Simulated scan of single mutants.
Amino acid sequence: MAETADSSSKPSSSTVSRTVLLLMRVLTFVFLLIALILLAANKETEEDTSSGDSAEFKFNDFRAFRYMMATIVIGFAYNLLQMALSIFTVVSGNRILNGNVGYLFDFFGDKIMSFVLLSGSAAGFGASEDLHIIFKNAELPFNVYFAKANASASLLLFGFMCTAIASIFTSFALPKKA
């Protein structure tokens, strides 16, 4: 009888999976939100002392940073949807999308979104490093601008990792076919 009491006090593995999945979604939300704010607010104006010219850069001046912003926004929207579904599942114990369709949506959605987030992060890192080298040789230092762009790309990379971990947990829930 003591064994029954001990085993009933442990949460089931599906409860633990749902809780970890919700935690990964919340972490992804936080990383994407901060990455979005950093990239959107990233603006740098510097004056060239020799010519008196000034230059201003924003994220939308570069295609790679616009792509990175698009991946953040798409990932953010998908993650908000999945967070709402996860919260409902954890609180009620029931899924909104029942059957195989719900599990497949979670699995393939997480897989695709993780790769989208990874590609946005890679585009941001690559553009930031290339542009840093180009402007390092010019007489306009934009170190702060590129540091913020790298920070945003890093947070997007962390968002990718959380989504990839979530996709592993959603794969455990896939129905087993004989």
Rank of each mutant, 00 (worst) to 15 (best):
N150A: 12
L140P: 06
R25P: 02
I165F: 13
A2M: 03
L157G: 11
L39M: 11
L174Y: 15
S171F: 15
I112F: 10
A55R: 07
A70W: 08
E56K: 05
T15G: 01
L80F: 10
Y78H: 14
F105Q: 03
D110I: 03
A2I: 00
T71K: 07
V91T: 05
Y67A: 02
P11Q: 02
N98L: 05
I168S: 15
L118G: 04
F135R: 06
R63H: 09
G75W: 08
A166Q: 08
I168Y: 13
D106I: 02
V101K: 09
K136D: 13
H132R: 11
E139M: 14
G52I: 12
K43T: 12
A151W: 09
F158N: 13
A123Y: 02
A147P: 12
R66C: 02
L22Y: 05
S54M: 04
S8Y: 08
S9Y: 03
E129C: 01
E44V: 06
S9L: 05
V144P: 11
L85I: 01
F88M: 01
E139P: 14
I165P: 07
M83Y: 06
A77W: 05
E139T: 13
G93W: 06
A147H: 14
M161G: 11
S14P: 05
Y78I: 08
A40K: 15
K148I: 14
E129M: 10
I72C: 03
A178I: 13
A2Q: 03
Y103G: 04
A41R: 15
T19I: 07
L32Q: 10
S9H: 08
A84I: 04
L32D: 10
S92G: 00
L80E: 02
I168C: 15
K136C: 05
N60C: 11
S86R: 03
I133H: 04
V101L: 06
L38C: 12
I72H: 04
I74A: 15
G75P: 03
M1N: 05
Y103R: 11
S8W: 09
F88Q: 04
S152C: 10
A5R: 11
K176A: 15
G120M: 00
L104A: 09
T28Q: 09
L39W: 11
S167I: 10
L22N: 01
L33R: 10
S171D: 12
I87C: 05
A122K: 02
V16Y: 03
I37Y: 09
S119N: 07
I112S: 02
F158C: 14
Y145I: 10
L156V: 11
S9V: 07
G102D: 00
L156H: 07
G120P: 01
L27S: 09
R66A: 06
F59E: 01
